[in-house]
């Protein structure tokens, strides 16, 4: 009977260790610990070019994550990309004339959306749209412009 008790305890320890490992993976390794599951509201922005922006990319203001990109669509009348992002509900003081731009983390890192606050007293509501946007930096275009301007300098 003593032995059986010991077996039970060891099995209990085993299960506890396994579940603890799962918990560790969930909270410390994956984004479950940092994920914001609270309320959020949706805002839209149109970009001429989103580069390689993907759904789930962070939306930041002053470098702090305040939301996530949830959907990316295409406006077939204006030939622009529509980006829908969920901003966490506690950041509900974003001015209407906020400036949205697509930035890159590091030189070759992931792309994300950076918001620069405007000065308007009106704030963005659920379903609101950011009017002023700046497209993603596409490396080929930048290099192309650089070569073009160099060539023009040479003509002078």
């Amino acid at each position: 009977m003593k032995l059986a008790k010991q077996t039970e305890v060891l099995v209990g320890v085993f299960m506890a260790i396994g579940l603890l490992a799962l918990f560790f993976l969930a909270m410390k390794v994956s984004n479950l610990g940092t994920i914001n599951t609270g309320d959020s509201y949706r805002i839209l922005a149109r970009f001429d070019n989103i580069g390689s922006l993907k759904a789930k990319a962070p939306v930041t203001m002053a470098g702090v994550e305040i939301g996530r990109v949830v959907e990316i669509g295409f406006d077939k009348e204006r030939f622009q990309a529509i980006v829908g992002m969920d901003v966490y509900a506690n950041y509900d003081q974003i001015p209407e004339d906020t400036y949205a731009k697509i930035l890159t983390a590091g030189l070759l890192g992931e792309q994300y959306i950076g918001l620069d606050p405007g000065g308007s007293d009106e704030v963005l509501k659920d379903g609101g749209e950011i009017e002023i946007t700046q497209s993603a930096l596409v490396l080929e275009e930048v290099i192309g412009q650089f070569i073009f301007s160099k060539a023009q300098e040479g003509d002078k």
């Binding site: 085993f14 299960m15 260790i17 396994g18 579940l19 490992a21 799962l22 993976l25 390794v29």
Partner: peptide, 15 residues
């Protein structure tokens, strides 16, 4: 039952 627990343990200790 054991397999997922063991796999989680493996990954956690690996990390």
């Amino acid at each position: 039952i054991s397999m997922p627990l063991l796999a989680a343990l493996f990954s956690a200790l690996g990390i």
